[in-house]
Nucleic acid binder design. Structure first.
Lengths: 93, 93
DNA sequence: CAGTATCCATAATGATACTG
DNA sequence: CAGTATCATTATGGATACTG
């Protein structure tokens, strides 16, 4: 359901606050337009986030997490905890 | 650090019990030799599992989780919990 | 048993140009 | 702003044959 590495970052970012497409791009750093749209469409299809369009000029779009998406945070936290505890341990490289 | 979809299954399987290469293959269902070795080497490099060779004839090898690997289970459990709760919700397909 | 080595198909991602 | 469309590149996974 999560699709790719960017999905984690997107979820984390939207957990922090709902935001638009280009805003997300900037906050995510170096994701490409295609990767971002692919990820967003995928997460929307799985109802992890929702997309709302406001008919302003130019049009504005807001992405935000659903309840399902917000609850995914528990997994991210668990991952972070494990990651922080063990990040140092790998063979050389 | 986890590398791919098979890594989850490998960790779960080894959590259940340490085992050899072909034993793992059978228990994992339809993983190919290449995918399994790739995954095992990767997880070993990240010290999530260890590989022990016994000089029998023919040689036997045992894969088992490290402490770091065993603690990864918390993440798997969290994922399962979330998955079970939300598995039904997606748009049609 | 426990792999390695190759080759190949396909999937994932990125770069770039263009649009309402 | 919020994308779509296309092409190129790279990463990943599978099939197959062979080995100590």
């Amino acid at each position: 359901m999560i699709s790719n590495k960017w999905a984690f970052a997107v979820i984390a970012q939207l957990y922090y606050q709902p935001q638009g497409f280009n805003q997300l791009r900037r906050n995510l750093g170096n994701i490409t337009v295609k990767s971002l749209t692919d990820t967003l469409r995928h997460l929307e299809r799985h109802q992890i986030l929702r997309r709302r369009v406001f008919p302003t000029i130019p049009v504005s779009v807001e992405y935000s997490l659903t309840e399902k998406g917000r609850e995914y945070r528990a997994i991210l936290l668990q991952m972070r905890q494990w990651g922080e505890k063990w990040i140092a341990s790998r063979n050389e490289l």
